[in-house]
Design a protein around this nucleic acid. Structure first.
Lengths: 219, 219, 219, 219
DNA sequence: GATGAATGAGTGTTCATTCAT
DNA sequence: AATGAATGAACACTCATTCAT
């Protein structure tokens, strides 16, 4: 028989209460006692569903981050394919897309998809990047930066080799990688709704693609 | 009689021990017990010098942050003065300086001065931006961003008005402000010594000034 | 339909898992959770078969201890019968048996039978005497000592009365009773296999019978 | 200024309350909360004086066991000295002493000294041997047995070599070592006062020395 | 027979802070 | 200026046990 509790199952009530508590106080200062009390459940119950405090946090944050990672994986894979076919065309597409008003492809479209998902799981996103100190997620932004760095590096190397140019310094690429992720995250942090964030997305992509292209002096 | 303890006064020993503990565990997980033990002092003594845990943290971090803020204040004031005299010239200078190899003036020189100071107080800097969760400094980067935003906005507004251009959208300016601070902080985080960081400074400034100038289409 | 599970019934799986857990951690520190997990069963199931934690422990230990007790009962009964017939002969037999190499009767034979049984139920034996703190078995050795004391006392009294000797002091008898049980238990504890223990049995019996006989100065 | 509390210092009150609690429930089931409550002190105070639960237990038991160990050390050293001078005489002395009524030397005198000390610290003794499961003292009797075994072995080896006899089997020596310690401990456990225990000491020593001498067939 | 969820009291331990001396 | 003792609330977590299904 399905659970009758219209407020959701105990596990969900715990996760809901935990989300609020972690948002208010951060992982370290959050109290499991408070979470259980607000979920209307005893402390023991929590440990039936979750291994420990971090497992509870993880159960909330992980699905969201993993979904974002999956979208990015596909995006990167797509660009890699293009790169192998025609590196030059990829760069042109980037620039063209960034300048198109009603862009529906490339980076902008990927960013838009991620934002749409993020805003429908806004709390989990905040938890992962701002309230996760003391958990395994405390460096999750750094992971995304590292990942982005590898991606940018493979594009830049490919391009420079093809055009007989000197390779872009890793430090610069890392800085750009960081910039991109930061712009992305800060935009999400600055606007309360998806609609507002999306309105500003083109400007952001234009800015980032612009910076990226200046690395290659003939664009 | 002057203090005989060659290892420094009790207060300094406490701050030294605190610095290590806060660095290792962050503010929230740091233990005053441990700090006092490592300082070779009883817990009571701590409360003679510091109001509470946060006051101890603050006493370490504040002087460094305030000094950085002061350098920035002077830099901003200087640019404002230039702006009032000749806005156009300021932009030209920016670009010129960014492209000069052995730049000794403008942004690069300011950045260099800040780095020099930062690297000689590296721990305090790390404490402020990475170990301060739970204290009043946990948003100190955001404060610098806000400040930088106001500064950039005043320049942009001045320039746009002077040239009869449409004002730059605040969102974009905020994004740029964030980018600049982030690049600055991440560079400091990525290189262990001042010498290495300084070597990469020109590239960073070039990247940032480049991005800044793209906002004004005739540069 | 007979149970299909080739690994044994649920009850047996629980007892098997419990044996391991109790052996590792002792009764008090053993966790029913762990036992159920290792048995591949839920906690509820345990309470279908066993009243509580102690009942589970008891179900493992009791059969073995009771079987040992039964062997002893028969041994004591046999000696009592001999005693009633000819007390003097009993003592002679004891000494004679203890000095015979391939002794197949008397104490040695009883001890051998018990050891054989004990080694085929070694874990249960260990549980009873070393892991039972917190259960009703925590004093099971003392019970065996008390029992042995009563037995030795009846023999000693009988003998002393028959020979017009002063009765052996209860304290001494109790000490001997304790010695005998302890030697027996420690031998089992010191050798990992029945074969090794059995090899040393004659020496042990000789030592114990020797001590026992010194109580009666004309042996 | 000395503490005014006529009930003793906080530390002593804690140890006193702990002694009672450990005696009643054993180490594992004892509750620090109960101990603190009975000592009229908060839980935090306990942790000012003791590292953890085991440290509290240890602080009570260790001094007593160490003192006993010291008495034994001296006794063993004394016998070793005698052994080096005249092994044969040592054995004679043992037998002679064991049979003397008002024995004031040798084993009996050592045992008496230990008992006198033990009975004036009876609770600590009980804690060490019967309530210490879960602590580092849970095998303290085994340690004494091992120690005694080494001692007995050195005497036996010396004697056998001197008389050209076959060495006594380690198993037998270990059994004897165990017997001796057990008799000693059980006597302490069986009599509530030192006076009563002392009254029975000669019988015990006679029994043990008797057993010991039977290992060497010419005594 | 057995499950899965839940209880609720209990555990040892740590904490920042206080204060008489 | 500094000590050493003490507070008391809070912490994450574990436990044996229960029970409707």
């Amino acid at each position: 028989m399905p659970p009758k509790d219209s407020d959701g199952s105990t596990k969900e009530k715990l996760q809901e209460a935990a989300k609020k508590e972690f948002m208010q106080k951060g992982f370290l200062k959050a109290s499991l006692r408070t979470i259980c009390k607000n979920a209307g459940v005893t402390t023991g119950a929590l440990y039936f569903f979750f291994r420990d405090k971090e497992d509870l946090f993880d159960s909330i944050v992980r699905p969201v981050i993993e979904h974002v990672a999956q979208i990015l994986t596909e995006h990167f894979k797509h660009e890699d394919t293009q790169l192998n076919r025609n590196a030059n065309a990829l760069m042109q597409t980037l620039i063209h897309d960034a300048n198109e008003k009603d862009n529906a492809k490339g980076d902008l479209s990927t960013a838009s998809a991620i934002y749409r998902y993020l805003y429908s799981n806004y709390d989990e996103f905040i938890l992962a990047i701002q309230k996760s100190q003391g958990t395994k997620w405390e460096n999750c932004i750094k992971s995304f930066v590292d990942w982005n760095f590898e991606h940018l590096k493979s594009i830049a190397d490919y391009y420079c080799k093809a055009h007989g140019k000197e390779e872009i310094k890793p430090f610069v690429l890392r800085m750009v990688a960081h910039s991109q992720i930061n712009c992305f995250v800060n935009t999400a942090l600055n606007f309360p709704t998806f609609e507002e964030a999306e309105k500003h997305l083109p400007a952001m992509v234009r800015y980032l693609v612009g910076g990226w292209c200046t690395l290659f002096d003939d664009f």
